[in-house]
Simulated scan of single mutants.
Amino acid sequence: MESEEDPVKKTQIVDARARNISHNVRCTECGSQSIEESQADVAILLRKLIRDEIHAGKSDKEIYKKLEDDFGETVLYAPRFDLQTAALWLSPLLVAGAAAGVWAYQKHRQKTNVHVMALNLVRGVPLTPKEKQTMLEVLTPPPPQGGRKWWDR
């Protein structure tokens, strides 16, 4: 009885592995579907190739490597992270960091300009520290209203 279940179980394992791999491989003809979902001729051939490789005893990693070598890196939905793709993966962070840097610089420049103006006005004028503080408070502009654009700051 166990010999009858063994081939069935083995077939189920092969099918599960093949489906798992097929879900992670992009159809080269369709582009937006995995080869598991696609009914294109090339997808059918790739599913057969994957099953043949599994029956030949290849590991999932070896099968992915073969597909990548034969069809290029874009055949896999999850391309490897390397120096070439690092710029693509990290570009949103770089853009957000640059935007935050510009915003921080604008805020710093706005504060610095007010203080420089105030100090230039009182330079050489004998004022007490309280009078200097009052001058700074008077010369500090109010917070911007909704109508100002980011480039006006």
Rank of each mutant, 00 (worst) to 15 (best):
F71C: 02
F71Q: 01
F71V: 03
F71D: 00
F71A: 02
F71N: 01
F71T: 01
F71S: 00
G72L: 06
G72Q: 07
G72K: 06
G72T: 02
G72A: 07
G72N: 06
G72C: 07
G72Y: 05
E73H: 11
E73A: 09
E73T: 12
E73L: 09
E73Y: 09
E73I: 13
T74E: 12
T74D: 10
V75P: 00
V75I: 15
V75E: 00
L76W: 04
L76S: 02
L76M: 13
L76F: 08
L76N: 00
L76Q: 03
Y77C: 02
A78P: 00
A78T: 10
A78V: 12
A78C: 09
P79V: 04
R80N: 13
R80D: 12
R80A: 13
F81S: 10
F81I: 13
F81D: 10
F81C: 09
D82N: 14
D82A: 02
D82E: 11
D82M: 03
L83H: 09
L83Q: 11
L83P: 00
L83Y: 08
Q84S: 05
Q84G: 02
Q84R: 03
A86S: 09
A86I: 07
A87K: 10
A87W: 06
A87N: 05
A87T: 08
L88S: 09
L88H: 12
L88R: 12
L88I: 13
L88T: 13
W89K: 12
W89I: 12
L90H: 04
L90S: 10
L90K: 03
S91A: 07
S91F: 05
S91T: 06
S91V: 02
S91D: 04
P92S: 03
P92E: 01
P92C: 03
L93M: 08
L93F: 05
L93A: 06
L93C: 04
L93W: 02
L94F: 09
L94M: 12
V95F: 01
A96R: 10
A96F: 13
A96S: 11
A96D: 02
G97R: 08
A98N: 05
A98S: 07
A99C: 13
A99Q: 11
A100N: 07
G101M: 08
G101W: 08
G101P: 00
V102N: 00
V102L: 07
A104D: 06
A104G: 05
A104Y: 10
A104V: 07
A104F: 09
A104Q: 08
Y105E: 08
Y105S: 11
Y105R: 06
Q106S: 11
Q106E: 10
Q106N: 12
K107P: 01
K107G: 14
K107T: 14
K107A: 15
H108N: 14
H108D: 14
H108C: 14
R109D: 14
R109V: 15
R109K: 15
Q110P: 03
Q110C: 10
K111P: 00
K111Q: 15
K111C: 14
K111A: 15
K111S: 15
T112Y: 04
T112Q: 12
T112S: 12
T112E: 14
